[in-house]
Design a protein around this nucleic acid. Structure first.
Lengths: 205, 205, 205, 205
DNA sequence: GTTTAAACGAGACGGTACGTCCAGTCTTGAA
DNA sequence: TTCAAGACTGGACGTACCGTCTCGTTTAAAC
């Protein structure tokens, strides 16, 4: 009834092989077959744990990513955001970036996987920003009513860059984007009058 | 030296079959083999034109998209942007949306294809926004120095939504996003003084 | 290290399908693809066993031929040879003959396959004749020093007929050829004196 | 109505390319496509002249072979035969041998081609031997009633060797085979009594 | 200790698609 | 009408993975 317990070394071997192979051949160029061969593990053992290549990769990624995720708290929204963005952007280089792109690719073609990715990776990042915003909101730095939109403005351009030009994710771009998000955060999220009369402020009063 | 010229009817048949099949089985469920069978065209003929399934789809998509692409000119940035976004968002439903997601997935896994996608699809959309921004800038509606950032703020969240939750792309989200972009456009793109005099809040008053 | 053992039923299915298809469409008209389809076996499974269509056919042929191969022992060389030749010639009709011709064709174009054909089919037939000759030699019926030449005289004309006119392989031709081989067997394999004395004709008298 | 006449240079180019390619890649490894490419001639031009690769090769071969074909007339059957066989055997080396094997392969799988091969190549060789035999018969050197059988004994083993072991076609084998044919030629083609009584000669008397 | 049951490697299995090659035909423009 | 060029359909090639299925062996908990 109990049977032989799963060997944790097998899990590790799979993760290790997966990451190596992505580094060498890209996500596309990796097959379950190759992971099995490289890891010295049978295909059966992999399929016992993961339903698809995507899940293998997500597992490998999560095992790595779990360590990080800082939520700076400097008392200043701009500094907090900037720190988070710089950290996040710089993490999109190398194998890690390749893996992220691959996971996104998988999610784009498979709703169930999209769900999974959201749960295991995306949500945590969004929550980190949400926490920063909550603190800033208490300090009166945020006028905009929707955290979610602000978060979209943070990560949307990041994934967009990952899609078209990963090289764009520099510290400079992080700063530019931070300032843009700040501008929105300070706004009320409703169109101001375009007449620009000095009394426009009164409409809110 | 001349040889028999390519038959344009073949190009059309390929495009038509590709779109039909994506509609029926999704991008994943389409194979070059199936496209050839459905279109009554030989695989050779397809490979002569396109290097991969992605290119076939991109070509089919581009042939459709070429017809549209409105650049509203109402004399008001908010209205122009909103119109474009609503139009674009509503175009991400159904087969077209599925196709866009698939193309993005492909681009995420293949740099060469990413390039191609940029050239044939992305650039045109960005240019449409760029034109709208240029007109608004002349009218004094845009203070932010970088068109590119503003454009990133328009399309970044769109692709981000396509990745995680395509259902998010409603007219309402278009409006919310438009206002956010406007807020940034009106800003100077540089952080406001953070000297944090207790009266700083009054500047808005 | 052990792995799942090969399924002998697969071997059989391949052989059966191969023979059926040769009967229906001729060797030329058979493809690996068709063998796989007809046998309900994957192409992989076939290529795991055989490197080419030729090998598949040879295997099928050999599996059949293995059952037969009589070596008559009547105590008389002529009768033994005649029986073997009649049996062999009559076996070159219908599908079997077509198959033999095809195997020969394959061998003519591929040295490695020639080798294989020799090992698996030809050698056994030659050995059958060799055995007959050995017994006859003990009885003093064979003067010619070379078994191999005598065997060549048996099978050479057979393949030659298969090449140019398979219909020639009648019982009558078997008899004629048998007598010719006998004539050589009784000779010493060296030219008789050609001193050409006018009386040399008398030696036969 | 007359149109442009065919360019004989095209015929030559085809033949030349065909022979070159057979030499380089073997008959198997030659395609109409390759012949066209190598010769700088369009596929159309080839198909206008020849119905198949086999016919191209037969044409190329015939253009070469037409020059030779000696029918020695030394006044002695053995010498005539030996000369012919040595000449013929030595001609089966190199490209020529490869071509002959290929033509045979083609004939084995295609009755129409077999016919053609017979007409254009085989018949002439048989006739050469037939002529030699006729002269010998007049000199009383041939007792056997059937020229055709004797000819089969000459060429059968040759093709047989070509099939299984072309290296066998040495001058020595030519001699051995010649002697065997001679033995048959001197026989009556009917089985002698095996009792070997000295009176056996009388049965014919 | 012995059972017992699951995990393990190896690798065969039916499928499906891949991207390539060649056959034989057709279509262009030039000679 | 031929010619070189090259597009065209059709079909098979041999390969690569997929996810599943035996095999024989190993391992640890339950008896």
């Amino acid at each position: 009834m109990t049977g032989r317990p799963r060997d944790p070394a097998v899990d590790d071997a799979i993760r290790r092989a997966a990451l190596e192979l992505v580094g060498e051949h890209g996500y596309r160029g990796v097959s379950m077959e190759a992971i099995a061969a490289r890891s010295g593990v049978s295909k059966q053992a992999i399929y016992r744990r993961h339903a698809s290549k995507g899940e293998v990769m997500l597992d490998a990624q999560a095992a790595f990513a779990r360590t990080r995720l800082p939520t700076p708290d400097t008392g200043d929204l701009r500094e907090d955001l900037l720190a988070l963005l710089e950290e996040t952007f710089s993490g999109q280089r190398g194998v890690n970036g390749a893996l992220n792109r691959a996971l996104a690719a998988e999610a784009l073609q498979d709703d169930a996987f999209s769900e999974l990715l959201n749960e295991r990776l995306i949500r945590q990042r969004r929550d980190a920003v949400r926490l920063i915003l909550a603190r800033a909101r208490e300090r009166g730095e945020v006028a905009h009513p929707s955290d979610d939109l602000l978060i979209d403005l943070v990560f949307g351009p990041m994934w967009y860059a990952l899609l078209l030009d990963p090289g764009k994710l520099t510290a400079e771009y992080a700063a530019t984007l931070t300032d843009a998000v700040l501008a929105v955060a300070r706004s009320h999220g409703r169109p101001e009058s375009r007449t620009n009369s000095p009394t426009s402020g009164n409409t809110a009063g």
